[in-house]
Amino acid sequence: MTDIIVTNLETVPGRQIIKHLGIVQGNTVRAKHVGRDIMAGLKNIVGGGLRGYTELLTDAREEATQRMMGEALDKGANAVLNVRFSTSSITAGASELYAYGTAVVVE
């Protein structure tokens, strides 16, 4: 998976785009487990960073990106351009992480 270029620019520096393959996307919905919720609740008294949630969201975003890259590889792309991330809360306990971009073939 490392041979695919992922960028949020509209071009790859120093390379020409040969073919556009259309939009590719990846998503994942994650819920936090109760232990983390309790810890976060305690942290809410003193404030500051919530490490558990930060890790959870990093992992989830990584997975969404991996799925997007998987789809791009299936289409025969070697780069994904103009990647965007978005997050939405579905219910109080869960959020969806979504990554999308345009799969292209570059020289």
Partner: peptide, 20 residues
């Protein structure tokens, strides 16, 4: 610029404290 580029990201979850 050199050829190629890589997506980088950084995230953080911050909580409010009770006083706030």
């Amino acid at each position: 610029l050199e050829t190629g580029g890589a997506l980088v990201s950084g995230n953080v979850v911050v909580a409010v404290d009770y006083f706030k």
